[in-house]
Nucleic acid binder design. Structure first.
Lengths: 253, 253
DNA sequence: GGTTGGGCGCTGGTCCGACCTCATCGTCAG
DNA sequence: CTGACGATGAGGTCGGACCAGCGCCCAACC
C-alpha cells in the first residue's frame, strides 16, 4: 500500500473491536437493525466485516453489557426495545452493592450525618440558603420531564450541597460533599428507578419546608425518609437477594 | 447417562464466562488483587482456571467496560485504583487535619455522628461489644480515684471506640476515630473540670444501659447529653481554638 | 386429526493454538 | 554516558473446531 500516510485522521487507529463496536452501534442507531430485530449471526457478521468471529463476539458482548442488545443462546442476538440505554450503571450497582459493604456503610453514614445536618439547618438557615435550595427544586422539576439524568444529578447535588451549607458548619459540609462524591455512581443510577424524579422532588420539598419552618425534628425525619427511600431503591436495583455468584441477572427489555 | 434423574441440582449452571467473571470480581474485592496491582496474564489465568483464553478475555473485557480494571496493551491488566475502603480512612484523616483548628465544628459533627452511632449500636450490639464497653467503665472508675488523667483518657477512648465498633459499620467507626484523634487535646483537658470523671462514668453508664436495652432513642439522647455536658465544660475552661461557627446549636429535636 | 416425539439446522458458547502489535527493559554499540 | 535495538512478554486478532441451547418440521402414534 502506497498510501503515503495520508490517513492521519486516526493516529492510534481504533482497535478492530472498537471499529466493529462502532459499526454495530451505528447500524442499530440508524435503524438498519430496528429495536426488536435480530442481528446477523456472529459468523455472518465476522464474514461481512472481514474480522474474526472472536472479535465480533467481544463487541457483541459489550453491546449486551451496555444493554443495547439482548443475547439469546441458540436463538440469536436482538436489539433491545429500549433504545440508547448505553450505560453500564446497572451492572455497576449490581457489583458494587453486592460485593462491597463499603457503599452500604457510606450510605448509612450519609443518612446519619445528613439528618443531623438537617437539624442544624433548621436552626441556622439563612434566606440565601433557602433560596439556593428552592432553585434546585425548579431545576429538578425542569429535568424531570422529559428525564435528563445529568441535569437531575446536578440539581440533586445542588440541593444537598445547599442543605449542607445551611448548617453553617464548613467542616460538616465538606465531609458530606466528600461522601457524596464517593457515591457518584450510585447517585446516577438511582434515577433509573421509576418515578424517582417525582419522589425526589416531593421529598426535597418536604425537607426544604421543614427547614424553612425551623422545625429540626421534622427536617430530620424528612431527610431520613428521603435517603431511606433512595437506598431501598438502590438495593432493589442491585438485587440484594443473592449474596453469592449464581447466575447473571436475567433482565428483559 | 443412566443417572436416573437424581442429580437435579444446578440446571442452568452459570456459564463459564460468568463464573470467571465472578471469580475475578471476588479476587479483586477481597484484596487478592489490590487496587493498582497487575492481574495475572490472560494465558496464565486461562491456565489456572482451566478455561480457554478467549473466555477469560471476554470476562476481562467486561471488567474493563465496567471500569473495574484498566487494560494496557503490551503491559498488562491492572486493577483500577478507585475510591475503596482503604482510601477512605486516609481521606478522612486528611479531612480532620484540614479542620483541626475548627474544634467547635468537629465537636458538633462528633455529636451528630456519635448520637447516630448510638442508635445503630442499640440495634446491632453484640454481647462482646457490651462487654468491651463494660470493661472501660471499670477502668474509668479505677482511674477516677485518685485521678489518673492518662488512664482516664485511655478508658474514655476505649469506651467510645467500643461504641463505634458496636455499630457494625467499619467506615463509621474509622471516621469517628479519626475525629476523636483530632480532639486529643480537648479530651485531655476536659478531665480538669471538677467532677468530670464521675459525670463521665454516670453518663457512659447511661449510654451503655440504653444500648444494652436496645432502645435507640434513649441511647441517642444519652450520647447527646454526655457530649453536650463535655462541650459546655470545655467552653468554660476557655477553649482557645474557637473558629467561625455562627452560633452553637441550642437544642435538638 | 391432533398430539407428540425426535431429528435437523441454526445460533450462541467454549476451546485451541498460532500469529500480530505494542510497551518495557536490558544490552550493546557509539 | 547515551541512544539505538532486540528480547521478552503482555494484550489483540485470527480461524477453525466442537459443544450446547432453541425452533421448526415432519413422522410416528393415539
Amino acid at each position: 500500500m502506497a498510501d503515503a500516510g495520508v490517513e492521519l485522521t486516526s493516529l492510534r487507529s481504533p482497535s478492530v473491536r472498537e471499529r466493529v463496536l462502532a459499526q454495530l452501534r451505528r447500524l442499530i442507531e440508524d435503524g438498519t437493525f430496528p429495536p426488536g430485530s435480530r442481528l446477523p449471526g456472529e459468523r455472518e457478521l465476522s464474514d461481512q466485516m472481514q474480522v474474526s468471529r472472536g472479535t465480533v463476539r467481544e463487541a457483541v458482548q459489550l453491546l449486551s453489557a451496555l444493554g443495547v442488545v439482548k443475547i439469546r443462546h441458540g436463538h440469536g442476538t436482538f436489539v433491545r426495545r429500549r433504545p440508547g440505554a448505553e450505560d453500564v450503571r446497572q451492572e455497576w450497582v449490581d457489583w458494587t452493592v453486592r460485593h462491597s459493604g463499603h457503599v452500604r456503610e457510606l450510605l448509612e453514614i450519609r443518612r446519619g450525618l445528613e439528618s443531623f445536618a438537617a437539624e442544624l439547618a433548621a436552626h441556622r438557615r439563612e434566606d440565601r440558603d433557602l433560596a439556593a435550595m428552592e432553585e434546585t427544586l425548579d431545576a429538578t422539576a425542569a429535568a424531570a420531564e422529559p428525564v435528563d439524568v445529568p441535569a437531575l444529578v446536578q440539581s440533586d447535588v445542588g440541593f444537598h450541597h445547599a442543605l449542607y451549607e445551611a448548617t453553617g458548619n464548613r467542616a460538616l459540609a465538606e465531609l458530606l460533599d466528600a461522601i457524596g462524591q464517593r457515591l457518584t455512581r450510585e447517585r446516577a443510577t438511582a434515577w433509573d428507578f421509576a418515578g424517582r424524579p417525582q419522589r425526589s422532588l416531593e421529598q426535597h420539598r418536604a425537607i426544604l419546608d421543614a427547614i424553612a419552618a425551623g422545625t429540626p425534628a421534622q427536617a430530620r425525619d424528612a431527610v431520613i425518609a428521603h435517603l431511606r427511600s433512595v437506598e431501598s431503591e438502590l438495593a432493589q436495583l442491585g438485587d440484594p437477594t443473592s449474596t453469592d455468584v449464581p447466575h447473571p441477572s436475567r433482565e428483559e427489555g
